[in-house]
Write a protein that binds this DNA or RNA. Structure first.
Lengths: 204, 204, 204, 204
DNA sequence: TATGAATGAGATTTCATTCAT
DNA sequence: CATGAATGAAATCTCATTCAT
């Protein structure tokens, strides 16, 4: 009770429970505080507000995920430019991503599935948008190699969507990290092959 | 005040606006009523409660969708059993499904994206489960033709997930029905091909 | 539905059910009307308002009870003045009273036990007051025969209270009229004897 | 605002006023809070809900009453078993009971007369049942001494009823504790004598 | 470092009642 | 004879947030 770090930690632990059960919007600060053996005021001492408490849980894991996404995407871009074979890289990327996703499993679940009403409620869409942007450049370069073809924007966006959701789906359905790595492999394989085959359409 | 049906219709129209903007949980009956030029009591005259108002918007479109899903799935099962070629059928199914989905675009969006807190909050999951169940049977029969192979349950479930989400994604990104039909075509093609290739794994 | 008398009757029948179950205050006109296959408006056509509906149920039985009470009390007064023996009369009074009370058992129960919130919520107290008033006169005359004695007002009022409640209690605990007559007999006997013995106190 | 205990106390004081005037069901938390110079939220800070506020008023007095009732009843049982004379004990019991009843007069009135709709709405009936249970045993032993006689169940129950109501009636009609003690004395005397005389009937 | 008190705004829901038709 | 529509007031309750201490 006296150790400040401990109180903060207990608050976060209780908040994780509550957010996971009720979602951000329906979560009650009173219940979180009470469960932590503290009062609502304590939340406002340690965090700015309800959203601040939520941030304290998800911000760091999110940043690490975004970092990995960015690194991978930059690497990927170069690969396409050099027509390199990069199957192994995909697995390396998946491994890194899954490593971080499962490092704080609860936080990740909360961020991806229970953020409605919070400042993060569109996080999945924002990640998709991020991917989209990179794919845009990549696909344009790819298309330039095939005269008479152009990028199918809809498919491109759908691939971004599908790729992000593949990981979200994984998190939801496979709580074990080792199993997760095995299961995502054919999924990625499928998507990579499909990307090459379906991303271009006839230019009329 | 004037036409009886008009008030109910105004209430539903206002509710659609509010649900779409705020989602079920955060939508305010006060605002809905006021926007319709009525009082909250009127909502309880025309509908049972907040959930009843929501149902009045989404129940019928939902039922039509489920009907089409079921019809298609039964047909699909027979096809696999007879090794028939059925690409055309997929397009017919997509056409029917999209036809209904776009018949009341707003209702569909509300049902699929803004139902959290309502009795329909798990509707997408329930649709996925429905698909999953049918695929289960289908895949088992398919697997029986290939000794040494078995169904990859994870991939199977992911395909259900992906298929439903492909339509949800479509709805979200393509408000025009005609365009929607064109855009979903390669997506379905991609998924059908993938299904055959990735649904089985080595039996150890 | 078309016969007006029938509608009114159905409304009253449904109201009896609802009042008995919920009490006047918590009874819902909507539920009463619906149960009668009508709408709330119908209540206002046949009765003035919620209280009017209640009155339609209890007014007549109440009046008959009051009539009997008054008749008995006037007779009783004369008896005391003439020192007559009147045990049989008590039983006759009880028989008449119980006859009316059980003539419309439900109405009586509603009037005596479920009237809170209605215009009749103090009916038992008013009946007690009525009795009290008559006893007042009677006891004063009785006391005038015993120098050094005076009426114990508290006991007098308590006897009124007890007498009324004896019948209320009977109604509540014995739904059968014939049984009721048997059971009330020793109760009345007890009270009559007690009245004579305890109604006077020493005048200091 | 100022003294913390003061707000809670003001809330309880206002609640007593409102409950006494309107009864539990029709009492308004808004009015109670406003009268206390606070908002409804304050009620929910200090108490769990409307029933909790009611409990805060009546729970303690009630428990003390029940305690006295139980003690007296156990003592009474022994007395009958030993054919002891115990007139004095009745007065002691009455004194104790009245002492507690008048310790918080308003709370007692609210509990006994204005609890409809609350968790305590059947408290008088429960007290009667408690008494009834004890009398059951007592009367059975008494009856065993008189061959050819049996307990008149209806009278027995009516005595329980009458005894409890004698105190309720007292509370209602005599706000002064000292006066109350004097007034209840002949009432108890009357009931004790009656009990012995009327509790048995011929066994057929 | 945190509490305890309290606010103020808002939520859904229920109700008796009215009235044009 | 009765409906169907609608009101307006009120109800309990929940919540994030604030702030003096």
């Amino acid at each position: 009770m006296s150790n400040p770090n401990e109180s903060r930690a207990r608050l976060i632990a209780s908040a994780k429970k509550e957010f996971k059960e009720k979602g951000f919007a329906k979560a009650s600060l009173r219940k979180i505080s009470a469960d932590a053996g503290l009062t609502t005021g304590a939340v406002y001492f340690f965090f700015q507000d309800k959203n601040g408490l939520f941030s304290a849980i998800v911000e760091e894991p999110l940043n690490r995920i975004l970092e990995i996404l960015r690194e991978h995407l930059i690497a990927d871009q170069d690969e396409v430019m050099h027509y390199e074979q990069h199957d192994g890289d995909h697995d390396a990327f998946a491994a890194a991503l899954i490593g971080e996703m499962y490092a704080d499993y609860d936080a990740m679940m909360i961020l991806l599935h229970h953020a409605q009403g919070s400042a993060y409620e569109n996080i999945v869409d924002r990640m998709i948008a991020l991917l989209d942007e990179y794919y845009q450049t990549m696909a344009a370069q790819y298309a330039s190699l095939f005269p008479g073809k152009r990028v199918n924007q809809y498919m491109l966006h759908w691939f971004s969507h599908m790729q992000i959701n593949a990981f979200v789906h994984l998190l939801e359905h496979e709580p074990d990290k080792t199993q997760a790595l095995k299961k995502i492999s054919p999924v990625l394989d499928f998507m990579v092959k499909g990307f090459m085959m379906y991303i271009l359409e006839d230019d009329l």
